[in-house]
Amino acid sequence: MKASRRGLFPALCGRVPLRPPGARPEPEFAALCIRCNRCITACPYKTLKPASWIYGERAGTPLVVPRKIPCYLCMACPPVCPTGALDPITDKRAVRMGLAVVDPESCFAHQGILCRTCVDECPLEGEAIYQDGELKPVVTEKCVGCGVCEKVCPVAEPAIVVRPRGDQ
């Protein structure tokens, strides 16, 4: 896609929101989303919120702030999208919202402090994130980006965060 079609404000502020499960890749999602709030209404966990003005013209589109409420992969939202901005998938393992990234600088496990909260809480139970021989968390390609790990990370500024797959 041409640079101009990637959106103006996101290009300026560099913020890419984490999208609901099933979301099309980013420029397309923002183009297809009509802010009907139906996915937000469908979410039983109040995970999805409309984006604010800091996302420029993408304001009003649904996003996930995992540190507040992560996605629990109940898959209630993809089928309600009227425009195809969300693919109507039902398999939580097919979700590709983002990819969790561990910050070795602040992760307790990387400092020799045994912490396995992210591994224990991961809904994919060992598939998306596992502990290596030194019990450091390792994220695999199977990570769906639900953000539960980011939510529960005990470090004040979470040491594991979900990078949206959006514009990558």
């Binding site: 297809l32 009907c36 013209e57 009003g60």
Partner: peptide, 14 residues
């Protein structure tokens, strides 16, 4: 131009 449905964002009925 901005690749975003501005009618959806700005129109009063929604």
């Amino acid at each position: 131009v901005v690749a975003s449905p501005l009618v959806a964002l700005l129109a009063p009925p929604r």
